[in-house]
Each structure stands twice: as structure tokens, then as C-alpha cells.
Design a protein around this nucleic acid. Structure first.
Length: 417
RNA sequence: GUGGGUAUAGCUCAGUUGGUUAGAGCGUCUGGUUGUGGCCCAGAAGGUCGUGGGUUCAAAUCCCAUUACUCACCCCA
């Protein structure tokens, strides 16, 4: 038996309504903020990600699905979407058509990690990117959009954490300060963290080793070493969030795993999922466009993990979707009426009604059971004396009563559905 | 890549100290009179007990290996 590849999942009909519900909500909220959908290929040239996300990041160094295609090009299944969106904007000069582009997406992503609760190798994200503006309104808007979507899904146990990474120059100065602080504590750090001293020192804040956490307790914080401009920008973001009454906490230790972030970063966490509690992450990336060889265009965005969000919704029991139903089930009483059943069904189906018939030659009783199971609001009995007299019986499945209609007068039947 | 847990019917799970033809609930199918659902009742189908070895008179049960799934670490959505 061939099975689905590790870390990939089939979404069965019994689950699809949740996905549709979420997707529809995302589209509605995005539309209300005037974000427009963009779709990019699943495959990109590998260099887009290695340059954009950063060679030393975990995503690029060990998690990408990369292969050489038949034209000897190294291609990669997209592990995230921001680099692709920025590439598309540059490639199609969207930035020259209008100064600000507000874009959103819903798309599968691929990372070859070990699966666990809320983590898959093929997973799905929705997200937004605002390209071309540095105004803190946009930073705040990302958080607002994400927060509103999660709240509209009925999620309660969520926390918004924000931080600022500042501009590269002040960050470099701070890294130096942090390094001095850590230098004489080097031997006490975990092996992983020691490696990060040189590769990505900020991520030592992410460590879960008790000893590392201890040491970092007293470490100097980036936020204390930001330049004035960054502080003002961050302050404005906070003011906006306060004004719109979105609860948040500043987490000076919040750093992100992708290299392109500057200024504002944020995460939305849920206590209703397993240990992979980040439902959503994002921030500002004013350097990304240049890093991938394009024009200097600032941007800010976020991405949210759909599987994790749906998991949180399930654990919080946050949506109760109505049962599936169909409008009409046509019961073929006489076996000879196969063609007539199809003909009649088509008349209703072309009126945009949701109609089902029997395909298994089953008894009237079995067809009735099926109609009931499908949640049919009404059934039509086609056959017997009524049919000989040019009539059909229409039964209301909820009330249980039935009426007789002229088979030629479809419109009258439809009026009674 | 590292560690823990699990593996019996389509699903959720029982299966006692190893001992007859491996069970339940749900689901599926058929029927409960000539053409009518839900509730109820009756019956049926459906299992190489993850796979491969070993111990034993005898293995779903004990041992070893292997695979898959799962949770956690790392990192992230």
C-alpha cells in the first residue's frame, strides 16, 4: 500500500468545511483592509531563499526541499512566501505602478522537518505583505489583521508579543555589547548556544536550556540599545495597538529565525495547541528587496499556520459549523425510471439546487435512509401510480408531510422547495 | 539529527497469569410484507492482531529486530 509521504496530510471531505470557513474568513478580512490576493509558483530558484531568508538559518541550511531539475537549475519548494512575493513585485514592477502594494496569500509551504503536533512537511499559511511603506500604521495593521482573523475564528487563548529589532547599525552595535557580556560566560553556555555566538548571536535568547535562560536573564537587551528613530517607530506601533485595544506584551527576547527582519517583529501564540504554539509570526523587512538583488523597497508582513490555527480551534471548540445538507433527493421508485430520474435531477440542478439521486440500484427504503443521512430537506418519489398520472410526490423530511405535484410543472415544485 | 510512547475490524478501543473458531461500540450493507427516513429490532459483511525472526506443546499476549505513526528536543507557522 502506497501511503502519503511523511509529514503530508490528506484533507478529507469531512474536514474541508473548516478549511473553507477559514479561507473565506481570511478573504473577507483581507478584502476589508484592501489587501489583494497574489499567487506565486510553488517552485522557485533556490537562490531566492538562500539570499532572502539567509544562508545560516535553519530553514535554508537543513529544511528545504531542494533538487536539480532537468535543465540543471537548483529549484526549491517554497518554505515561506515573503521572498516569493517580493520577487514577484520586483519582477512585475508593481512598485512602479503604485507606491504601496498590499498583498495577501493562502498557499501550501514545504519544510523537511520532523513532524509533530502542529507541524507538517507540507503545511499551509495565509499571510499578508505591505510593500513600499515604512509607516508604523502598516506594522500595526499586520497585527490587527492577524488578530482579527484569529478572534473571528473564536480563539480566546491567544497572546500577542511584539519587539523591535531596530536597524542594522544599532543591531550590530548591540550584538557587540552582547558578545562582550557573553564572552566570559562562554563555558557555561550550551553547545548549541556557543555555536550561535558567531553565527546568530540573537537566537541565544530562544534557547530553552535552563542554564542558557539563566545567563540571558541578565543579558543586555536590544531594546535598550535601539537608535531613536527605531524607538519612535516602535512607540508608534504600540500607540496604535493601544488605540485599537489589541492586548499585547513587549517581549524584549523575541527574535525571529529569518535574517531579513528589521524594526518591528511580532508573534501570536496560543496556549491551546502543543509545544508549537506560534500561530502567527511576522515583522518588518526593509532590507529584503535589496538582498535578493532588487530595488530598495521596505516591507512588512506576517504569516499564519493554518493547520495550527485549526488545531487551536478544535481544542478550544471554537467553531460549530452547521451540518451538511442537500436540497433534494430524488427517489426512484420504479427501476425502469433511471433515465427519467437523471432528467428530472438535471432540471433542479440547473436551478442551482443541491440534488442527489441513487446510483446503486437500491430499494426505496435504502434510498430514504440515504436521503436522511445526507440531510436532504425534501425528497421526491418518482414512480408508481402518481407517475402514471403524470405526477410526483414531494415529501418534507423534517415535517414528514407530503404533497402531489404535476410533473410538468417544475417551477411550482421549485416554489415549494 | 536525538529521545520517549503507540501499533488488534473503516473509526474508537477491549482482550484477564501465554491456552479452543480474536471481541464490543460506532460506521457500512440487508431485512422488519405489496412504494417512505430518523428511534428501535434482527441479521450480515469486514481482521495476514504493523512486518520479520525467536522462545514455547501453544504467542495478539514474552524476547529481539525492523517499519510506520505519534509526542517532545532543535527550529519554526
Amino acid at each position: 500500500m502506497i501511503k502519503a509521504i511523511t509529514g503530508t496530510k490528506d484533507t478529507l471531505p469531512s474536514d474541508i468545511r473548516k478549511w473553507h470557513h477559514l479561507e473565506e474568513l481570511v478573504r473577507n478580512v483581507m478584502a476589508s483592509f484592501n489587501y489583494r490576493e497574489i499567487r506565486t509558483p510553488i517552485l522557485e530558484e533556490t537562490a531566492l531563499f538562500s539570499r532572502g531568508i539567509g544562508e545560516s538559518t535553519d530553514i535554508v541550511s537543513k529544511e528545504m526541499y531542494t533538487f536539480i531539475d532537468r535543465s540543471e537549475t537548483s529549484v526549491t519548494l517554497k518554505p515561506e512566501m515573503t521572498a516569493s512575493v517580493v520577487r514577484a513585485m520586483l519582477e512585475h514592477s508593481l512598485d512602479k505602478q503604485q507606491p504601496l502594494n498590499k498583498l495577501y496569500y493562502i498557499s501550501p509551504m514545504f519544510r523537511q522537518e520532523r513532524p509533530q503536533a502542529g507541524r507538517f512537511r507540507q503545511f499551509h499559511q495565509f499571510g499578508a505583505e505591505a510593500l513600499g511603506g515604512t509607516n508604523p500604521s502598516l506594522d500595526a495593521e499586520m497585527i490587527i489583521v492577524a488578530y482579527d482573523i484569529l478572534k473571528n475564528l473564536g480563539l480566546n487563548n491567544i497572546t500577542v508579543k511584539i519587539n523591535s529589532l531596530g536597524v542594522p547599525s544599532s543591531r550590530e552595535k548591540y550584538k557587540h555589547i552582547l558578545k562582550i557580556y557573553l564572552n566570559d560566560k562562554k563555558t557555561q553556555l550550551s553547545e548549541e548556544s556557543r555555536k550561535r555566538l558567531d553565527t546568530n548571536i540573537l537566537r541565544i535568547f530562544d534557547s530553552k536550556e535552563a542554564n542558557d535562560i539563566n545567563i540571558m536573564e541578565d543579558a543586555p537587551l536590544l531594546i535598550e540599545h535601539l537608535d531613536n528613530e527605531s524607538l519612535e517607530q516602535f512607540d508608534m506601533v504600540k500607540q496604535i495597538l493601544l488605540a485599537v485595544k489589541i492586548p499585547f506584551e513587549v517581549d524584549a527576547r523575541l527574535v525571529r529565525g529569518l535574517d531579513y527582519y528589521t524594526h518591528t517583529t511580532f508573534e501570536i501564540l496560543s496556549s491551546s495547541v502543543g509545544s508549537q504554539s506560534a500561530l502567527c509570526g511576522g515583522g518588518r523587512y526593509d532590507l529584503l528587496a535589496e538582498q535578493i538583488g532588487g530595488r530598495d523597497i521596505p516591507g512588512v508582513g506576517f504569516a499564519a499556520g493554518i493547520e495550527r490555527i485549526l488545531l487551536a480551534c478544535e481544542n478550544e471548540n471554537s467553531f460549530c459549523l452547521p451540518d451538511d445538507f442537500i436540497d433534494l433527493y430524488i427517489i426512484r421508485v420504479d427501476k425502469e425510471l433511471v433515465a427519467k430520474t437523471n432528467e428530472l435531477a438535471l432540471l433542479f440542478r440547473r436551478k442551482n439546487l443541491n440534488v442527489e439521486i441513487d446510483y446503486l440500484n437500491r430499494s426505496v427504503k435504502a434510498q430514504m435512509r440515504e436521503a436522511n443521512k445526507l440531510g436532504a430537506k425534501r425528497v421526491i418519489f418518482l414512480g408508481g401510480e402518481e407517475y402514471s398520472a403524470g405526477k410526483v410526490v414531494l415529501k418534507d423530511m423534517k415535517e414528514g408531510n407530503q404533497q402531489i405535484f404535476d410533473l410538468n410543472n417544475i417551477d411550482e415544485i421549485i416554489n415549494n422547495l
